[in-house]
Simulated scan of single mutants.
Amino acid sequence: MKIKAKIETGEKPITLNLKGRLAWTLLELVKAGESGITPLHNPAPRVSHYVMSLRRKGVAIDTNMQPHGGAFPGEHGVYRLKCAVTIEQVEGRT
Rank of each mutant, 00 (worst) to 15 (best):
I87Y: 08
V59S: 06
G74Q: 10
E88R: 05
G33A: 04
Y79M: 02
V90S: 04
K2V: 05
R55I: 07
L27K: 08
K6E: 15
K2W: 11
M1H: 11
T94M: 10
R93A: 11
I3W: 06
I7N: 02
F72M: 13
A84W: 11
P73K: 12
P45K: 13
G70F: 13
G70N: 11
I3Y: 07
A5Q: 03
L18I: 02
R80N: 10
H76L: 11
L16C: 02
F72H: 15
I61V: 08
I14W: 07
E28Y: 09
A71G: 15
L40T: 06
P13C: 08
E28S: 14
R56V: 03
K31T: 00
V51T: 01
H41Y: 12
N64H: 14
Q89C: 00
L40K: 15
G58W: 13
T25N: 06
T86P: 00
D62E: 15
T38C: 07
C83K: 00
V51R: 04
V85L: 00
E8I: 04
V78S: 02
E28C: 09
G70W: 13
G77Y: 10
R55P: 03
E11G: 11
L81N: 06
L27V: 03
I61M: 08
K31G: 01
T38W: 12
L29S: 04
E11D: 14
T63Q: 14
V30P: 02
V85N: 05
H41G: 11
V30F: 01
W24I: 03
K57E: 14
H68T: 07
L40G: 09
M65I: 10
K12S: 14
K4C: 09
I14A: 04
H68V: 08
W24Y: 12
M65V: 11
F72R: 15
C83A: 06
A71Y: 14
I3S: 06
N42G: 00
G77A: 10
L29M: 06
T15G: 01
I7A: 06
G33V: 05
E8A: 11
V47A: 10
G33H: 01
L18E: 07
E8T: 02
L27S: 03
T15E: 14
E11L: 11
V51H: 08
C83L: 01
I61F: 11
M1G: 15
V85Q: 04
T9G: 03
G92W: 02
P45T: 08
T94P: 02
K6M: 13
G58I: 02
V30I: 01
L22Q: 03
Y79C: 05
A71S: 15
N64W: 09
P43L: 00
L81Q: 04
N42A: 05
V85G: 00
L22F: 01
Q66R: 14
P13A: 06
G77S: 05
H68L: 12
L27F: 04
K6C: 07
G92M: 01
T38H: 08
P67Y: 09
H49V: 11
G58V: 07
A5F: 07
L18G: 04
